[in-house]
């Protein structure tokens, strides 16, 4: 199944209200510096494109860039790392968000049940922890609230290490928006918001990957 680029994935889901940080798509190292200065340091710079689905594994994500010089160097290195298979590439410049809590949310077309929406505890241990909840699309607000209640690690959702509790209404909104996106776009087969960071209690998706039918 083809995947949309991160930028296109975000654009598609943002239309329905899924929250993403302000980001800029640029094509040159100079453009990246300019974008970083507008966003404010530190920033993240990623290499994006239609053919690039698993950036982290390929080292195409540079985190915590604190100065124009760092951004320029990182951007140049990323552009140089692109291979002909990647097709047309771009740079995505985003603010470096700090969060101690990571969730994961997404869509998955199940063979038996059709389109489903998922919420889980995220981070690198997400699949091992497997604290997740699924519902069939479309969901109601009550369904979304009950998905949040389903998670076993409720302690992560309360006040946590000096941070406020998770805004449950905003988190339910994310799930509802995913459901709406799936309903509106029958060609979507899956979507990942991974991670879905909890920043000052509010969910923000810093990566998105949407898979569509060819």
């Amino acid at each position: 199944m083809p995947t949309l680029s991160e930028a296109d994935s975000k654009e598609l889901l943002a239309t329905f209200g899924v929250p993403f940080p302000t980001e800029r798509v640029v094509t040159t190292a100079d453009g990246a510096v300019e974008a970083a200065e507008a966003i404010g340091f530190p920033v993240v710079v990623k290499l994006g494109g239609e053919g690039i689905a698993h950036k982290t594994e390929r080292g195409l994500v540079r985190l915590g860039l604190g100065s124009a010089g760092q951004v320029r160097d990182a951007a140049a290195a990323l552009l140089a790392a692109a291979t002909p298979d990647d097709g047309e590439v771009h740079l995505l410049v985003a603010p470096m968000l700090r969060a101690t809590r990571e969730l994961i949310a997404g869509l998955h077309a199940d063979d038996q049940f059709g389109m489903t929406v998922m919420l889980g505890v995220g981070g690198i241990l997400a699949e091992a922890v497997a604290d997740v909840s699924f519902r069939l699309v479309p969901i109601t607000r009550v369904d979304a609230e009950e998905m949040i209640d389903d998670l076993a690690l409720q302690a992560l959702l309360g006040p946590f290490r000096g941070e406020p509790p998770v805004d449950r209404a905003a988190l339910a909104d994310v799930l509802l928006h995913l459901s709406e996106a799936a309903t509106a776009h029958a060609d979507v087969v899956s979507a990942d918001l991974n991670p879905l960071l909890v920043v000052d209690g509010r969910p923000v998706a810093v990566d998105a990957l949407v898979e569509v039918r060819p």
Partner: peptide, 11 residues
């Protein structure tokens, strides 16, 4: 099943 997405892997 083999899935490209993390959501699919958890499903």
């Amino acid at each position: 099943r083999a899935a490209a997405s993390h959501t699919g892997a958890l499903a």
